[in-house]
Structures are given as structure tokens and as C-alpha cells.
Design a protein around this nucleic acid. Structure first.
Length: 347
DNA sequence: ATCGTAACGGTTGAC
DNA sequence: TAGTCAACCGTTACG
């Protein structure tokens, strides 16, 4: 990785909160956004309380509702290449069989022959480029394949995304069933390391073998360490939350909601300055709050958040009536659970 | 007043 | 090794 900035203290948003441009909010903050939403706190209040822009609150809650994950997506990297050796080989064969074939015809044939599906079929321009660069100048087959930099895992596959993300079901790579497992919608056509299960480290239903090695998914730093630059824990714990969601456990009531990146990250400090939950030197400590998600029951463990609060069912569907001002109960809940001092005035 | 979202500038990681 | 590209980020502004 490139050398990181020595110090990135972040910027201050309009609400007075500190953020690091381009970097995800700490998972702890993300978790708290979801927690507060589960308590029935309105997004606008969450925004003010946590000093996070309402747009961000909206995004995080929307993401959570959609995927069940509080975690940011994978930053960086590249999409899987579609011009795999196998695709090139097929294109070459098509071209050999019909030298006058058009790129769009090749594209159609790739689809028809099942070499590709609609999600990974190369564009016509890509095919043209392949014809021009890889095939037009090639005389002997195997040239491209012999490049040596291709992922050997692709060998033997009709086509395959280079990314070795596990698919929830075997049919997915074939593209006949995009969209992931029921209740989990992937926002991208290419498989993300941030499927709900991967993110939350709950993969048993799709890949039991992965449980043995907790980091079943590719250890992309961004997955978890991107927020806290601390390396992943290597145990069987959920890597991200344990790494990131470090509540102050000594304080049983979480009276100090310590929010600080680990010293190993480049941010140094993080948190709303006036919120008082910046505690440099403290780490988030795992607690194990459970955040039930309506879609798939995925839970985020992080401590003694009342596990009964359901995100949509209880908090949103019915109990959202007393939206603002906050009810006493909400204040009490927030104060006791999160140590947040909510302003008595809701405005 | 609230919320959804596009634009923006930034970071990151694969190539 | 450095540069490019395309992903994602949170904030901001707008409707």
C-alpha cells in the first residue's frame, strides 16, 4: 500500500463532527447510527446527535436496511476483468471460424454459448480491442494464456471473475441467478467482499468451511481495517466488529462512548469534538450488541444494546410515532445505553 | 423540518 | 515503482 499520511486529523463538518474525507466513518459510529434508528430515533436526530451529516445517516441506514450490514463497502480495487483467457480463446475461435464476424456477433455468441453471461460479457468495444490487440497479432494460440499473470484459479472454468469471492450458491457465477441470496441484495454486479454474510462474518449458511478460518473472505484492508487500521484479528471472531466496534467495556453503562481509532490508524482521533466521545488512546472494545435485521436475521454483536429492539418491526413500523421530540424513554435509553446526552430540546 | 440523492473532492487498492 | 482507473467514502446542497 502506498505510504499513508502521517496524520490525518480529519475535517469538521457543518455539525461540528470530525470526519476524514474519503474514509468511512468508524464502524462504531455506523453501528450507533443503526442502534439509534432501532430505538426509534429519527435520522435527523441521529445526525445531530452523532454530528454526522444526515446524508450519511441516510446512506448508512439505507444500506443497513438493504443489506443488513452496517459496514462500508470495499474501497478501491478493480472490477474483475471480463476478458479472461477463456473468453479470449473463444473469441479467437469465433474469429478463426468466421474471419468476417462482427464484434457484436461475437458478443452474442459468447452469450449464446454460455461463455459469458450478461453480467460479464465484454462490451463490443472490448471485443474489438481484443480482436485488434490480442488476436489480430496472434498467430499461435496460447499466447495470451501464457501471460502468466492470470489467476490460475480460472483454469478450467468456463469463465470466472478473477475475484475469488465465494458465491452463495453455485449457480451465481454462471450468472443465471444474479442478485445473491434471498434477502440480500448486492448493489453491484460483481461480487463484493461485503455481502452481508461476509461482512458480518456469518457465512455458515453459504460456506461452512469458512468458519474455521474466520477471514474467509479476501483480507482486503478496507473491509475492516480500513476504518481502524489495526490488522484483523485472526481469531474466530467476527473480524470487523471486533476490530472496530470497540466499546468501552469497563464502564458498564458505556458512560464514555469512547470513539477513537486505534493508534495504529492514521487518523489519530475521530469523533464529534463536542460530543465528548473522543477518547484518544481508547480502543473500541467488543461488547456484542445484537442488531437484528429484518431481512435475514443477521446480527451484529456489540454488547448490551437491548437485543429486543428490532430495526424495522418494532422501532419503525409502530413506535416511530413519537418521533420528535424524543420521548423520555428514548432519552433514557440513549443515555443509559450509549452514554449520549441528548439535548432535552429536540430542536 | 425532514429526507432522499446527485455532485463533489477525497482515499484506496488492483492492475 | 509510479500512474491510471474505478470502486467507495462522507459532506454538501438541492429539491
Amino acid at each position: 500500500m502506498k505510504k499513508q499520511k502521517q496524520q490525518t486529523y480529519g475535517e469538521v463538518n457543518q455539525l461540528g463532527g470530525v470526519f476524514v474525507n474519503g474514509r468511512p466513518l468508524p464502524n462504531a459510529i455506523r453501528l450507533r447510527i443503526v442502534e439509534l434508528a432501532q430505538l426509534g430515533i429519527r435520522p435527523c436526530d441521529i445526525s445531530r446527535q452523532l454530528r454526522v451529516s444526515h446524508g450519511c445517516v441516510s446512506k448508512i441506514l439505507a444500506r443497513y436496511n438493504e443489506t443488513g450490514s452496517i459496514l462500508p463497502g470495499a474501497i478501491g480495487g478493480s472490477k474483475p476483468r471480463v476478458t479472461t483467457p477463456n473468453v479470449v480463446k473463444n473469441i479467437r475461435e469465433y474469429k478463426k471460424g468466421d474471419p468476417g464476424i462482427f464484434a457484436w456477433e461475437i458478443r452474442d455468441r459468447l452469450l449464446a454459448d454460455g461463455v459469458c453471461d450478461k453480467y460479464n460479457v465484454p462490451s463490443v468495444s472490448s471485443i474489438s480491442r481484443i480482436l485488434r490487440n490480442k488476436i489480430g497479432s496472434l498467430s499461435q494460440p496460447g499466447h495470451y494464456e501464457g501471460g502468466g499473470k492470470q489467476n490460475p484459479a480460472q483454469a478450467g472454468l468456463p469463465y470466472n471473475p478473477i475475484y475469488p469471492y465465494p458465491y452463495p450458491n453455485a449457480a451465481s457465477p454462471g450468472g443465471t441467478k444474479m442478485g445473491g441470496p434471498p434477502g440480500v441484495s448486492l448493489s453491484r454486479a460483481w461480487p463484493s467482499a461485503h455481502t452481508v454474510s461476509n461482512i458480518l462474518g456469518i457465512r455458515a449458511f453459504m460456506d461452512p468451511a469458512a468458519i474455521a478460518s474466520a477471514e474467509g473472505y479476501p483480507p482486503k484492508m478496507e473491509d475492516w481495517g480500513g476504518v481502524n487500521r489495526a490488522p484483523f484479528p485472526t481469531g474466530t471472531d467476527k473480524p470487523g466488529l471486533d476490530a472496530d466496534l470497540k466499546y468501552s467495556q469497563q464502564s458498564s453503562t458505556l458512560s464514555t462512548y469512547a470513539c477513537a481509532y486505534s493508534p495504529s490508524n492514521q487518523y489519530g482521533v475521530y469523533g464529534g469534538p463536542a460530543g465528548g466521545y473522543v477518547t484518544p488512546g481508547h480502543h473500541w472494545q467488543t461488547q456484542g450488541t445484537t442488531l437484528p435485521h429484518p431481512g435475514n436475521g443477521v446480527a451484529v454483536h456489540a454488547g448490551d444494546l437491548h437485543p429486543s429492539v428490532a430495526f424495522k418491526h418494532a422501532a419503525r413500523d409502530e413506535d416511530r410515532k413519537p418521533l420528535s421530540p424524543l420521548s423520555k424513554q428514548q432519552h433514557a435509553a440513549l443515555s443509559s445505553i450509549h452514554g449520549l446526552g441528548l439535548p432535552t430540546s429536540s430542536s
